[in-house]
């Protein structure tokens, strides 16, 4: 049986793709994953599963991806290099492919000091770019690091993250180029609130011809409250939330802030749709997966085509 990959197919057809994020539970709780699967089904083309995000122990992303797959969704396996050395990373890639998972997002991961296991040893044996290259070599050459052949190569659509808002700006596009060279097929960006800076980054990417070589999905996160906006701006590394966005959230009464957060998110998606070289949107509604359907609908992205 040939497993189809909705995300890859959609992007290659030239459609504006939609992905969302699903955070696994802090427990051995498959129902929690299935509940989120139900919320997202039919609303998106693929669902990313976070890998012990913010270094907090959760149900494994590989297991959750397998559950999503059984519920008929196209999962994107997020894998961080923080917790696994090259042996474990390559092994998990083979395992994922064997389970029919078709997308992988290769990440560094938040530092272990941030989470609930601050005494853990950070592994960082490979960095995210080396990891992308390893997965590409496994897929395209059928070999692992060091050149030994695989009995079967993993057929994977390879993703990477990009943060257009981190410093130094001139280097952000070099890094994007490097990820593409390493083997990234698609990119999901950090949450976009500062559209001007994002457009500048996209322009630089276009100038280097990078948008021809990779599918870029702009990341968005609906704000639940002005408190969340301020927290993200002040505490989350690499986050750029302009004052205008904070002001806008501040101006509406508390009970209307969620609605305003969704509005901002929808407007962002509408602008993203207009930017040349943006191939889709990645909706990261943190512990608020029920908002995804509404956002996608208001942004005029429903119904999602079936494949």
């Amino acid at each position: 049986m040939i497993e189809n990959n909705k995300l890859e197919q959609r992007l290659k057809e030239g459609a504006f793709a939609v992905t969302a994020e699903c955070g696994p539970p802090k427990g051995a709780d498959p129902e929690a994953v299935m509940k989120k699967a139900e919320m997202l089904k039919g609303k998106v083309d693929a669902v990313n599963v976070t890998d012990n995000q913010t270094a907090i122990v959760r149900l494994s992303s590989l297991a959750a991806c397998s559950l999503l797959k059984s519920a008929g969704l196209d999962p994107v396996l997020q894998v961080v290099v923080r917790d696994r050395n090259r042996i474990a990373l390559q092994s998990d890639i083979l395992g994922a492919a064997a389970l029919g998972i078709r997308n992988v997002l290769c990440l560094s991961g938040d530092h272990q000091g941030f989470g609930n296991q601050p005494e853990a040893a950070g592994v960082f044996d490979l960095d995210s770019i080396q990891f992308i290259q390893v997965v590409k070599t496994m897929r395209d050459e059928g070999t692992i690091l060091g050149g030994e052949p695989l009995s079967k190569s993993p057929d994977l659509f390879i993703g990477a993250a990009a943060n257009p808002f981190a410093d130094p700006l001139s280097f952000r596009v070099v890094r994007l180029a490097k990820k593409i060279r390493a083997g990234a097929d698609f990119i999901q960006t950090q949450c976009i609130y500062n559209l001007d800076r994002f457009e500048k980054w996209m322009e630089m990417a276009r100038d280097r011809g990078l948008t021809e070589k990779v599918f870029i999905l702009g990341g968005v996160t609906p704000l639940k409250s002005v408190g969340m906006a301020k927290y993200m701006r002040n505490k989350v590394a690499g986050m750029d939330i302009p004052d205008a966005v904070i002001d806008r959230m501040e101006k509406v009464p508390k009970e209307k802030q969620r609605e305003e957060g969704i509005n901002i998110c929808v407007e962002t998606i509408q602008r993203l749709k207009e930017i040349e070289g943006v191939h889709g949107v990645h909706v990261m509604a943190i512990e608020w997966e029920e908002a995804v359907g509404e956002i996608v609908e208001k942004a005029g992205l429903l119904p999602r085509p079936r494949s």
Binding site: R82, S108, H111, G122, F124, D127, S128, I129, Q130, A161, A162, N163, A166, D167, P168, F171, R175, K178, Q190, A237, G238
Partner: peptide, 14 residues
């Protein structure tokens, strides 16, 4: 902090 040989990561600011 992340021993990156291909850095910087996405969190480098100022």
């Amino acid at each position: 902090s992340k021993q990156l040989l291909n850095g910087p990561c996405g969190g480098s600011m100022d």
